[in-house]
């Protein structure tokens, strides 16, 4: 797994001026390091299956948390509980101390955006239109104004388009802005989904396996992109299988196994934890250990 840090131009990290402009536009309060998204004892029961058992998480402002665990551990279910898609059987989710609404659209409005493990773009809309849909909650444009296309309408459209252009530049998709989402290469579809989520001006972004199916270069580009998103002041939770990716990206890592929160800590703590080595993937400990430690010293 040799990897070049030389990225092709279209995969390079977002340009500084775009980052600065976006940070200006989104003006997310940062620096307080207060907990922003908290889940306390979240349990999700599907009939006889307990997909989540008393999972607790606290995301601080400006933090990047990694969520790892084998397939079927309940990671996606946890995201669905956070975003109102599922109502937890018990436990509480709060955003800045207030209870999280139990409706995906209101969750987004409150400032939590997400991407999906199986890409869920609007396939026959253009990349630009996909991002514009992301602006939906922040646009001041009622039905009447939509009908009349007056000056206020045009202003709000122009603003939304301007922001969408910046976001497409931010994820490096400017050249595809008029292309239909379904025609985009796989990796770019994932990046477009991120741009669309960012368009909702989130303070928290939940990424479900953002590098699934990507090659080494694209994965590296995504890592850079998530750093850039954190720099905008957005707090991030990332689900990923690729432990190396998680350990070099996140401030804190949560390990979920069969719905239980097994270990929580800094990448170094988690990497060294024998329980993780033992439980994760269920492979012989030495092998996993070897795999986990290859990542040390690199970044």
């Amino acid at each position: 797994m040799s990897e070049s840090t030389e990225l092709p131009p279209e995969l390079e990290a977002p340009p500084e001026e775009v980052k600065a402009e976006l940070a200006d536009d989104m003006h997310i309060a940062t620096g307080t390091r207060e907990p922003i998204l908290e889940a306390a004892g979240v349990t999700m029961q599907f009939g006889g299956l307990r997909a989540l058992n008393e999972v607790t998480m606290s995301l601080k402002e400006g933090e990047v948390i990694g969520l790892i665990g084998p397939n079927g551990a309940g990671k996606t279910t946890f995201f669905n509980c956070l975003t109102g898609l599922y109502t937890p059987t018990s436990g509480a989710v709060t955003l800045r101390g207030k209870p999280m609404p139990q409706d995906p659209s209101r969750v987004t409005e409150a400032g939590v955006a997400r991407t999906f493990q199986n890409i869920r773009l609007f396939p026959s809309m253009t990349a630009m239109e996909n991002v514009l849909v992301g602006r939906h909650v922040r646009m001041k444009q009622g039905p009447v104004s939509s009908l009349l296309h007056g000056p206020r309408f045009r202003r709000s459209e122009a603003e939304a388009r301007d922001r969408a252009e910046k976001l497409l530049a931010f994820v490096g998709l400017t050249r595809f802005s008029e292309e239909l989402a379904r025609n985009l290469p796989y990796g770019d579809q994932r990046r477009l989904e991120i741009a669309r989520a960012l368009a909702t001006d989130p303070s928290v972004l939940l990424l479900d396996e953002p590098t699934a199916g990507m090659n080494a270069q694209e994965t590296e580009a995504t890592r850079q992109l998530i750093f850039a998103i954190r720099d905008l002041g957005v707090s991030v939770v990332v689900i990923e299988h690729d432990t190396k990716f998680i350990f070099t990206l996140c401030d804190r890592v949560l390990v979920l196994v069969q719905g239980e929160l097994l270990v929580e800590g800094t990448p170094d703590e988690v990497r060294g934890d024998p329980r993780v080595v033992e439980a994760y993937l269920g492979a012989p400990p030495e092998e996993i250990e070897a795999q986990l430690h290859t990542t040390e010293g690199e970044s």
Partner: peptide, 15 residues
């Protein structure tokens, strides 16, 4: 159009 394309994704976009 977003609802036509993918209703769940649409509601995840705040619609």
């Amino acid at each position: 159009i977003a609802i036509r394309e993918d209703e769940d994704a649409a509601s995840a976009m705040g619609i």
